[in-house]
């Protein structure tokens, strides 16, 4: 009896908790053009100090996106989220020279990418920010989550040592994928590693899940058309731009008035 009561209490507690979150979500300011993302998914406690510095003092922002196949859309260049983010950043940060590069690492696990980071970054000035989208290949190959963790851990350390800010991005959410790919351990690893290194985590999985739940996008969609993918990537790019600006604690309004 007492056990049952305990369980019930737990359930009630959790519901109360969820209830507590809900209003906060509703109040969040909605990003433009229907790509609504709850504020808590766009804020991070970790700061992008180098980004803030580069934007405020140098007026430039070099971003390198390291991603797998899901960082792109089979379509004209620039319709994947990296290109959309570039456009959104230019829009939001007038007067800042924004440059986004994409290095696709197709079918490579985090360990493989991590080992080649030196090569990927090349010599010379490291980018201000590296956005590392990873986990998909590892989840598909069911790589041991421990090994995955070590790989991401080392990769982030390497990037930070080279002098870049790092944002980690996790897997896509796909309702039909859940039967086939175990995502939870890889999502957990990314969250933990991000927290440990003070690197903001862009929770692509939760955001897409949210869109699917609220019906903004029908991710069950079966059509072979490119349209849905393009719209999702557009919204992801915008969300990512807001996320980066937020994590850098940059107020775009202040930038509009040059401080000379």
């Amino acid at each position: 009896m007492r056990a049952t009561a305990g369980l019930t209490a737990l359930a009630l507690l959790s519901i109360a908790w969820l209830g507590g979150i809900a209003p906060a979500r509703a109040e969040s300011a909605s990003p433009p053009s229907g790509c609504e993302v709850p504020a808590y998914l766009l804020s991070s406690e970790s700061e992008l100090k180098k980004v803030a510095e580069a934007v405020k003092t140098d007026g430039r922002l070099d971003i390198l996106v390291i991603g797998s196949r899901s960082a792109t859309v089979v379509a004209p260049n620039g319709s994947g989220f990296p290109g959309r983010m570039e456009a959104a950043l230019r829009d939001k940060l007038p007067g800042v020279a924004v440059k986004v590069d994409l290095r696709l690492q197709i079918k490579k696990t985090a360990a493989e990418v991590s080992g080649e980071l030196g090569q990927i970054l090349g010599e010379g000035q490291p980018p201000t920010l590296v956005i590392w989208q990873t986990g998909t290949v590892d989840a598909m190959r069911a790589v041991d989550p421990d090994d995955f963790r070590t790989a991401v851990d080392e990769g982030v350390a390497t990037l930070q040592k080279r002098g870049s800010d790092v944002v980690l991005m996790n897997l896509q959410y796909g309702p039909r994928m859940e039967t086939m790919i175990t995502t939870a351990p890889y999502l957990d690893v990314l969250r933990v590693v991000a927290q440990q290194h003070g690197a903001p985590l862009f929770d692509r999985f939760a955001i897409m899940h949210h869109w699917n739940e609220t019906g903004q996008f029908d991710l069950f969609n079966n059509s072979r058309g490119i349209d849905l993918a393009k719209r999702v990537h557009d919204c992801l790019g915008r969300a990512l731009a807001s996320f980066v600006i937020g994590a850098a604690r940059v107020n775009p309004a202040e930038l509009r008035t040059p401080r000379q």
Binding site: V73, V137, M140, G174, R176, M180
Partner: peptide, 22 residues
Amino acid sequence: AEISYVATSFENPLYTEEMGIL
């Protein structure tokens, strides 16, 4: 059976990478 069905009927380009699991 289920997976084969998904593989033949589902070709959303958004998930090209994930479909590699098949």
